[in-house]
Design a protein around this nucleic acid. Structure first.
Lengths: 357, 357
DNA sequence: GATTTAAGTGAGAACGTTATCACTTTATTT
DNA sequence: AAATAAAGTGATAACGTTCTCACTTAAATC
């Protein structure tokens, strides 16, 4: 049965190459690894042998010896969120040029999953970690959570801040972005503004910005207008969450908000679907403003006003700092450990047009 | 300087745990690995020691010994494409439950990048591979390309077929989906139908479906209406490609197609933006039909008619088959090596309403 | 109580590299 | 021509696990 032997095609090792080339494994290492020195003949012979055997170096063994894996972990809530997928793509494109690869983990905003991912990645001995933590405000003080983070491995926190960890952070100015968006709505005459988010820390900052804007304009901060719970009957990471929240906010006609501020892309879509389902018109019946820009925003009728994050900058700054940490562990990044990028309010038509600026 | 010693926090090994627990490394392995047998005392001592040292097993060393890495590679064109990010998310969620993680690679439809990714993943000794190959029709016969694939490692091809490799495949019925979409347009009275794609193999099959539909309805197959080149001045994986193509197709008023069929999500968005830019109305001036459904499709004015793929099914079938190959390498999947899933034509308003069915 | 079976253990050889060390050969300098 | 430097090489010890093997002790069988 010659077929059987075919199936278990042996994985060739450096030893096989050495044997075929008639040199020692050390020489093979030197030739293939490009260090030390080897004669022309030896080099030739090794190359030939490696080719003939279709030798593929064992990265695991290399990692074992070199104590580096050339891989970084990326923990995000949901790779389907265009914001995170853009970041992933940019980060990946930078990394691949340096020979790194990227391990992607979706937490679905679940703190426990985040912890088990961390353990997994640390076991994998990743060289670096980029994380948009799913830790909730309340959990951030919990020392048990912080113990799961290894301060010895290069880490960069994106999108959300984790206050009591001393890792560098790159994020948007959530407070200010939300403040501006809310102020914009207020200037257009809106007094009852609903806001849809969830329990993650970033959204808290945005809600704070919203709150401050309301208060600064002598409007009440009404918690009935803040929808930031996650309901069990609605799966997160799905349009349905935004639909559910919107329908709840718009349920009682008398108390109905005249504007809704959705705190991420998916939620914005949910709001639009729900408003459409209810037969309401934007912006006349209800104004809408979304967090995160999207390609189709300007094509909708009316075009949607959004708070635009500089995703590209977040990603590039974050990855360059991470690589810096990885490649030069002694670098002290104290100077500007925290990078906060400003957002941009892109005014389109979904909030009405009687601007009073 | 006690600070310096803090910085280089030693990575504890199984040896350290053994020493602290007062047992041999073999016993630690047994306790932590959950195999063999260990006394209650030993178990207790080991657990305690491991905890005290915050011991994190070295997965690299484990992989070295066990010859399995518990990681699979996913090669796609662009993680920002909702189609691929959905697949990635579903696949990841299945894998993580089994203790695997996923390494993501973006080829940007570049065959050379695909090859270098393959090499990288093989060196990493991934346990399995899921790939939407970027190989072009012409390259598929090139044996040089096929040599880069290792038939010894479990692999599943998704989205696109690679004819001369004997890996199982899961994909949509591209021909039929395009045939139906084109027929739909023809029945609505369209005779000049533009189609926008690019050079990848999947799109060829779709263009074939389009072509067949035209011929079956006694309409000419006009290559001027087929836009499937990639231009250097336009970066792929971006809305601009679709915009550029659309503006080209609609340039000459006399020859202008009355309908445009966009072969992926990003291209559809590009078409919509371009049509809007040109001040044309859908569907009166030009009808639009897109490949791949999207959340906002029904909210646009008019709602966009699309060919919907069963992304969820593609992902779940693909990953379950891959896991089957990984966990039971002897399984012969010959019976139904190729799974072709039918698409669904979701008729909305972007093609006009005088349906003659 | 003698024998078999099971439970609990440690020593040590792998796994496939890298990289140090010692050595030989060749090239370069005095 | 002798002395030194440089280039080329192979043996071999790590890296941190797993797991077989051999062994001791305890439990179960007759």
């Amino acid at each position: 049965m010659p077929r059987k032997s075919e199936q278990k095609s042996k994985e060739y090792t450096i030893k096989d190459v050495a044997e075929l080339a008639g040199v020692s494994t050390a020489t093979v290492g030197r030739v293939l690894g490009g260090y030390g020195s080897a004669s022309h003949e030896a080099t030739q012979a090794v190359r030939e042998a490696a080719n003939k055997l279709h030798y593929i170096p064992n990265g695991i063994a290399q990692s074992m010896k070199k104590k580096t894996t050339k891989s970084v972990g990326l923990i995000v809530a949901n790779i389907c969120n265009p914001y995170f997928s853009s970041i992933a793509r940019i980060v990946e494109s930078v990394l691949v040029k340096k020979g790194y690869n990227i391990i992607i983990c979706n937490t679905d905003e679940d703190g426990d999953r985040e912890i088990s991912y961390l353990k997994m990645l640390y076991e994998k001995r990743i060289d670096g970690l980029m994380i948009a933590s799913a830790l909730k405000e309340s959990e951030r003080k919990d020392s048990q959570f912080n113990m799961t983070y290894k301060e010895s491995i290069p880490t960069i926190i994106i999108d959300r801040e984790i206050s009591n960890l001393k890792f560098p952070t790159v994020a948007s100015d959530n407070f200010r972005g939300a403040y501006e968006a809310t102020s914009h709505l207020i200037k257009l005459g809106h007094k009852r503004i609903g806001i849809i988010g969830s329990t993650i820390s970033t959204f808290f900052r945005r809600v704070e910005g919203y709150r401050q804007a309301m208060l600064d304009h002598s409007l009440p901060f009404d918690t009935n207008l803040v929808f930031n719970k996650s309901y069990k009957n609605v799966k997160p990471g799905d349009v349905s969450e935004g639909i559910y929240a919107t329908k709840n906010l718009l349920k009682y006609r008398e108390y109905r908000p005249t504007a809704i501020f959705a705190l991420n892309n998916l939620l914005t879509t949910g709001v639009l679907i729900a408003v459409n389902d209810l037969g309401l018109k934007i912006p006349d019946d209800v104004a809408v403003i979304g967090w995160d820009d999207f390609d189709l925003a300007s094509l909708l009728n009316p075009p949607i006003t959004v708070v635009k994050q500089s995703t590209y900058n977040i990603a590039t700054i974050a990855i360059s700092r991470l690589l810096q940490q990885i490649e030069n562990p002694n670098t002290i990044l104290n100077e500007e450990k925290k990078v906060i990028l400003s957002t941009e309010l892109v005014i389109r038509g979904s909030c009405g047009s009687n601007v009073t600026y």
